[in-house]
Nucleic acid binder design. Structure first.
Lengths: 155, 155
DNA sequence: GTTTTTGCAAATGATTTGCATGGAT
DNA sequence: ATCCATGCAAATCATTTGCAAAAAC
């Protein structure tokens, strides 16, 4: 599964075509970048894509990410106090857990079911999607692995 | 339950004291503003609070809101493509539904239980909170209430 | 050839910060 | 009197927009 050939014959190019979008090198590079590093920020995506297309602009990346997200080819995650992240995993209903110490984001399977996974009992709205964002401390941040044996002297 | 006297004897002033924060008129005005108009933006809070304290600055409101949120006296909601909102309802575990048409935010009771209401089955993190944001179409936006009897002629 | 997309620069919107003054303790 | 909180201005950070040139179709 390279940039051009993808799962079940539905290549990035094919999906772009299907949405009347032109298949440009920058769009393919952005898609490849998002796929290879999930939960990346726009800046990180731009940086990654620039290894292929050095003249690719951050602003163009923003335009492309916004467009592809609107088309449903990408999913946008907006963690508190952090720029937006993007991922290609759409379709399967999974959620995200963010470590409040290091900021790392982890995919977590939905414990309930497929989207919309949760139906609020008390709502006058017709719910289309339910986004769940867990916040906690990841395994690495939980125990700093410092002073494993003796407590700090004098403290 | 005015600004000074509140539920179970725990007034805003008392809570500020308990957190070693000084009881200033601007903090009380901000708290009153957030309570009286839930899901208000920082700008709306500032505007509301200025009816009492006309010289209150938006920047001060930002500082106060950030501080009180960190203390746990306020809860911050960050809807996509919209400035942050604030509310005083903390403690009870409720979530939020936002209408993707008009942007209105509605409180919805958690269908599962108290915080953390959902525990992901597949996560290496220790989850502290689970925030759920529903997106959908509210009752008012669903049916524009136009042409209630006859279908549009010629369509 | 026509129309979308990109690159570039500048603008916008939300929020944060530095610093001197004012106000609560 | 002390020290935190506010007002004010400027800065920052993420993202959007306008427009001409470049690239797909």
């Amino acid at each position: 599964m390279t940039t051009k050939d993808r799962i079940s014959g539905r290549s990035w190019a094919g999906q772009l075509h299907a949405h009347d979008r032109r298949v440009t090198r920058q769009r393919l590079a952005v898609l490849a970048a998002v796929e290879s590093s999930p939960h990346a920020t726009a800046e990180a995506v731009a940086e990654a894509a620039r290894t292929e297309l050095p003249q690719l602009t951050l602003q163009s990346v923003y335009v492309v990410l916004a467009d592809l997200t609107e088309l449903g080819m990408l999913r946008r995650i907006e963690p508190p106090h952090s720029p937006a992240r993007y991922e290609t995993r759409i379709g399967d209903n999974h959620h995200h857990a963010i470590c409040t110490r290091c900021g790392r984001i982890e995919d977590v399977d939905c414990a309930v079911g497929h989207a919309p996974c949760l139906i609020p009992s008390s709502s006058s709205m017709t719910i289309a999607v339910a986004d769940v964002l867990y916040q906690g401390i990841c395994a690495d941040c939980a125990v700093p692995a410092v002073a494993p044996v003796h407590p700090t002297p004098g403290q």
